[in-house]
Design a protein around this nucleic acid. Sequence first.
DNA 1: CCGATACCGTACGCCCCCGTACGGAATCCG
DNA 2: CGGATTCCGTACGGGGGCGTACGGTATCGG
Lengths: 193, 193
Amino acid sequence: MSPAGRPAQTSPDAWAAAALDEIEEAGVRGLSVQAVARRLGVSKGGLYHHYADRRALLRAALDRWEHRQVTELNARFDAIDDPRRRLHELLEYSFVRMAPTVVLQLMAGAEDPDVAAVLERAAEARLGLLARILEALGLPADAARHRAVMGYSHYLGLAQLRTQSPGVLATDGLVREHLAVLEAALLAGTDAG
Amino acid sequence: MSPAGRPAQTSPDAWAAAALDEIEEAGVRGLSVQAVARRLGVSKGGLYHHYADRRALLRAALDRWEHRQVTELNARFDAIDDPRRRLHELLEYSFVRMAPTVVLQLMAGAEDPDVAAVLERAAEARLGLLARILEALGLPADAARHRAVMGYSHYLGLAQLRTQSPGVLATDGLVREHLAVLEAALLAGTDAG
DNA sequence: CCGATACCGTACGCCCCCGTACGGAATCCG
DNA sequence: CGGATTCCGTACGGGGGCGTACGGTATCGG
């Protein structure tokens, strides 16, 4: 009865992971069942034993991404105590080391209600994280929130611009300069600025 | 011989205009020939007497949008001489009066090469306009360019965030506050700041 | 060892879309 | 007034994707 302890060549998790990879490459709307099946070396028929719809598969992939984001951010920042270093690490991580392909693909496919929901939750999480850092640096709550929106907008727009017009921000040096400017703007008026 | 002076119930321009409206509502990938035909109250058959492909129709719609953007910006800013007022008007126009739905739809459909090209040209135009204003305010060329990229990124990200997570920037007052902050950041170190 | 269950492969129907072919109607010119 | 051109409507073929049905196979429990 209990469906535990099966070798399971293509587990639900494997389908979700492959679907997430497919989203990263082809976008939400380009996520086709057959493409995911090809990626797994399997025919599409077997999907419907694990998930009801294509929509259910999409939801599983989105859940996977969201969960991964949360745990990744936590693992990276929970150990850092100094808010000044937390901010620097957050910017460095988001702007330099990031490959924001999934976020961009999700934004492109935000017509889907499920995608829109996970994007909204992700935005709120990032905004909250940034705002808490700024509050720890001595800003009042509303100002911190305000500045967090500014920083997150900058992040989104820069990600968009970098892929949309690669000629504008060609070198990593330019990106780093922008990073420094943004960091200074975020720190202005705080204990550290 | 000359195809001028015809009543022409559905001229090529009418098709292009309807296609642009359809892009605004359904996105680039949602632009179907039949939907545009329905919008015109016509069957899709007649399209192919004006355009070769769906791609040609898409290009015409994109050209129409690009041309409209250029003439609209020119008409609005050519009369203003004071660069300080030009900047304010540009921000006011872009962030408050704008309905950036088309830009967002184009960004969402940037997988199409034609869409990517028009987006890149539009970005370059906006960046150049903003950079020229900042130069007129006394910034050296590279710093002006730098700051223009910052402002344009902020613009793109804020547009994205406003439609993606309407709860974050609910009221117009919040938008205006952000506008003031951005304006101050752009003006810092210039003749006017 | 045998039946039951879970899982996969193939094939099918259905829908949406593009582009083309053909017939018909209206308009313009001599 | 008549022919020609332009334009539109309908119908068709081709392609792709989703979800379902059915048959086959391997694994698990008795």
